[in-house]
């Protein structure tokens, strides 16, 4: 189990690092997916190795996959808007409003 938990932690850390440092919005989206999947692995691993008498952890993972897909759809649509307005998808563009 420790292997899966460590894998999830590494994935989460990579995703966190990506969200905080990426300039490209597609890169941010991919990093967000990594973070969601870290939670998924955690849920499934806990379900399999600690609380085997139930399926709620796996159910949770399935729901997370669905919601993450919905979130990615909306995210890509917003990235498209970004491209239409600035002809680029870097986060540097979205700095009109400050303080």
């Amino acid at each position: 189990m420790l292997f899966y938990l460590s894998l999830a932690a590494v994935l989460f850390a990579v995703g966190l690092f990506g969200v905080l440092t990426r300039r490209n919005t597609i890169g941010i989206l991919m990093s967000l997916e990594l973070m969601f999947n870290a939670a998924n692995i955690n849920f499934v691993a806990f379900n399999k190795y600690v609380w085997a008498d139930g399926l709620i952890g796996q159910m949770f993972a399935v729901f997370i996959v669905v919601v993450a897909a919905a979130e990615a759809v909306v995210g890509l649509a917003i990235v498209l808007l970004l491209y239409r307005n600035w002809q680029g998808i870097d986060t540097d563009h979205v700095s009109v409003m400050k303080w």
């Binding site: 989460f12 973070m35 939670a39 600690v50 979130e71 995210g75 979205v94 409003m97």
Partner: peptide, 29 residues
């Protein structure tokens, strides 16, 4: 301005629910 608001809200909203989920997975564990 509206698109900028959308981008910022999307990134922050998805990021926060990822944090929330990872926290919830520990509660479940």
């Amino acid at each position: 301005l509206s698109v900028e608001a959308g981008v910022k809200y999307f990134v922050i909203g998805a990021f926060s629910s990822a944090l929330l989920l990872y926290g919830m997975s520990f509660l479940y564990g």
